[in-house]
Amino acid sequence: MIVMKNICKTYKVAKRNAGFKEAARSFFRREYENVQALDHISFTVQDGETVGYIGPNGAGKSTTIKILSGILTPDSGECLVDGRTPWKNRIDHVAQIGVVFGQRSQLWWDVPVIDSFELLRDIYSVPHAAYRDNLDELTELLDLGELLRTPARQLSLGQRMRCELAASLLHSPKILFLDEPTIGLDAVSKIAVREFIVKRNQTHNTTVLLTTHDMQDIEAITKRIILIGKGRLLLDGSLEDIRRGGEDIDKTVAELYRSYEI
């Protein structure tokens, strides 16, 4: 179970303006501004739930994922993931979760994918028998077969994402965080990724929290939607709640963004 309570996070960002004069001035003095990335965010996710975490760019989606996965420490607020505070006892916490960053690979570029997997097995200290079972299952569900013997640099984006998903699940985490898992994928790969996530959730009761800009991801995977903008939680409800605004979910969300002026 994930419990977030009044989580706040502020960043200090350096201003950098265009133009020769500005560049010359910032040479001597640099200005900073505070950006409120998360402003009293609270929500609870039950075991086995799938939640879509949406919002425009810079709304604070990645910050939330980073806090939940133990990378970031918030300024204030409480957070418990299966009873653990992510930013304390980092190692104990991250052993129990899986994280996929859609924009960044965790596979070693020049070696076959299977080599990366075996390294992950050692990093997470997965017993050999359990690793083999897991790998077999993931290979079948994600249709990895041939890909395992291919160096990551030769994989297409879709193939790579399938391998990334497998890599994040080799240690059977109970919770899976996905940061834009379908970004840049072609239609076929997107469907494969979505189907897999749904299946994983059904067979292993894995809790899934995913951020995305693709409303079809949301329709296919999640039952629940959390909408944030400018660091504030704007809506926490079901897909149906959003559908009330009309059948075209993209339009409705755009409408929502506008109405909250984000």
Binding site: K66, I71, R90, I91
Partner: peptide, 18 residues
């Protein structure tokens, strides 16, 4: 710069070793 240290932090081993 490439954000790879984030990945290090999501793994259950000491950061220095990684």
């Amino acid at each position: 710069r490439r954000g790879e240290f984030d990945r290090v932090l999501t793994r259950p081993r000491h950061e220095i070793l990684q």
